[in-house]
Structure formats: structure tokens, C-alpha cells
């Protein structure tokens, strides 16, 4: 069970790390879902064309990175409402993919790979989990960029007074999160060797939830991803034993997050 959860949570965690750095930099990143999907698609297309896994990951990071650029331009440069533009990224990705897919394959549907699928063992999964969490933790803590990211979120004016433009840091972080989402998407689709419209299946939202539940700190976020993964495998296993309506299970993350948010707000209010 735990081993299975470890494998399941790799893409989730990587996306959550993307959500974490943007959240810390003061950007509410609704667009994770769309960026993951873009990455999943680009990865499969690239592997299909070149047969190389590395090319797949590279293409995924580029595609998601480009979506991130679009997100950052419309929200930061054009000063759009960040929630609305983030949503727009999620809305724009599926039809874009369908259209590109139609151009390339003549169909907007499932793309199967004949070869080159990615297979992570439990040990490798654990390694990747620790690597990404550790890397983000390290960047946030021990690099100049990390200091800038953290300050951009809490005290952008202070950052500006030190001669650094907060919007620049935010754009950079959005693009970084796009690249992470690309990796995440590539892992989802390459693991199965297939792209299916909607394959991201809400992982971007869950990742964002994990960021909130993990108090916006790398290792607690890892933990909350783990809890999600365990909950997911429990509910998978439970289907064989007891009947829980799938739709009700799907509503849990939403209600869990709102509960977390309310508790967080109460604590904040008490402190004042």
C-alpha cells in the first residue's frame, strides 16, 4: 500500500512543489491543472516522434513553460485578475491540445505510444520524491533566489526597496512552476504510455490543496501529498470491499481544503 502510494504521489508532489513556490511568491496558482495537462500531451507527442524519453521530458517542460509564460503575461504584465486568468489557462489547454492533436494525428483523442514508457520502482519513486522536495527546500533556504521568492510573497515593497522587482521574481517562479508541472505531466502520461484528454484528472487542484494543508512548507507538503496518496489507494481498495459513491469521494478534497482554510483563518484571527 505504501509503496503504491509512493509511486502514485510522484507527479502530484512535483506539481505541488510548483504550486508551493508560486504560493510563496504571492501568486495564487490556479493554472497547475492546465499546465500538467499540457506537459502530459507534449511528452507523449515528443516520445512518439523521437522515441526518446529525454525528449519527452524536455518537450513537456517547454510546453508547460509556455503555458506558464502565457499565464504570467496575462496576469502580471496585463494585470488580469489572477484567478480568472489562471482559470483561463485551464480552459484553454484542452481545446488547444485537441487542435494540435488534430493537426498532428488527425484526431483529438487518445494517443498511444508503442514504446518508451517510463517505469518507476518504489525505490526510484522515493528517491525522486526526496530529490524534488529537498531541492525546493534547499533553493528556498540556501539560495538568493529563495530569499527573493519568500519576500516577493510577504513583503513585495521591501523587495522592491532592495532593488529587485517582485513582478520579475513572480514571473520567474510561475515559469519554474510551469516547468515542474511539465515534469509532473510527463510522468503521468509516460508512465502509462498514453495521452488521454483530461488525463491530469484534477491533480493540479489536489496539488494546490496539498500546498495549503502543508502550511506552505516543502516537507509538510510532501507529507500532505503522502496522505492524499494513501487516502486514494485506500479508496481504491475500499471499492472492492464497501461501496462509496465515487462522486462523494470526489467532493472530499474540496471540503477538506475549505475546512483547512477556515481553521487557518481562525488561528490567524486569534493571533491578532
Amino acid at each position: 500500500m505504501i509503496g503504491k502510494a509512493l509511486i502514485f504521489m510522484v507527479p502530484l508532489l512535483i506539481a505541488a512543489m510548483g504550486g508551493l513556490i508560486t504560493e510563496l511568491a504571492g501568486v495564487l496558482n490556479i493554472a497547475l491543472e492546465g499546465m500538467i495537462l499540457a506537459g502530459a500531451f507534449a511528452a507523449v507527442v515528443a516520445v512518439d516522434l523521437t522515441g526518446s524519453l529525454a525528449a519527452g521530458f524536455l518537450a513537456a517542460m517547454t510546453a508547460s513553460g509556455l503555458m506558464a509564460v502565457l499565464f504570467s503575461v496575462t496576469s502580471l504584465r496585463l494585470k488580469g485578475n489572477i484567478f480568472v486568468t489562471g482559470l483561463a489557462i485551464n480552459l484553454i489547454t484542452p481545446p488547444l491540445i485537441a487542435m494540435v492533436s488534430k493537426l498532428l494525428y488527425g484526431s483529438g483523442g487518445v494517443i498511444r505510444l508503442s514504446s518508451g514508457t517510463l517505469n518507476l520502482s518504489q525505490a526510484e519513486s522515493l528517491l525522486w520524491l526526496l530529490f524534488f522536495t529537498g531541492a525546493i527546500w534547499f533553493v528556498l533556504r540556501y539560495t538568493p533566489l529563495g530569499l527573493r521568492i519568500r519576500t516577493a510573497g510577504t513583503d513585495p515593497d521591501f523587495l522592491f526597496s532592495r532593488g529587485i522587482k517582485p513582478a520579475g521574481i513572480q514571473s520567474l517562479v510561475i515559469i519554474l512552476s510551469g516547468i515542474l508541472c511539465g515534469i509532473s505531466g510527463a510522468m503521468i502520461s509516460l508512465k502509462l504510455g498514453v495521452f488521454i484528454p483530461g488525463i491530469s484528472a484534477g491533480k493540479g487542484w489536489i496539488a494546490l490543496v496539498a500546498v495549503y494543508l502543508g502550511f506552505k512548507k516543502p516537507f509538510p507538503v510532501l507529507l500532505s501529498c503522502f496522505i492524499f496518496a494513501i487516502a486514494e489507494s485506500l479508496s481504491d481498495a475500499a471499492q472492492g470491499i464497501i461501496e462509496i459513491p465515487a462522486n462523494l469521494i470526489l467532493s472530499f478534497p474540496y471540503f477538506m481544503t475549505i475546512t483547512g482554510l477556515v481553521l487557518f483563518s481562525i488561528a490567524k484571527k486569534r493571533k491578532q
Binding site: 502514485f8 503521468i188 488521454i196 483530461g198 488525463i199 486514494e232 465515487a246 470526489l250
Partner: peptide, 14 residues
């Protein structure tokens, strides 16, 4: 067993 949608291949795999 039921997946809940027609596209979540990861869940299907699990």
C-alpha cells in the same frame, strides 16, 4: 470497480 470518469487512466491503473 468504477473509476468515476472516462479519462483518469492513472486511477484506472491503480
Amino acid at each position: 470497480r468504477v473509476i468515476g470518469n472516462w479519462y483518469d487512466a492513472s486511477k484506472a491503473s491503480d
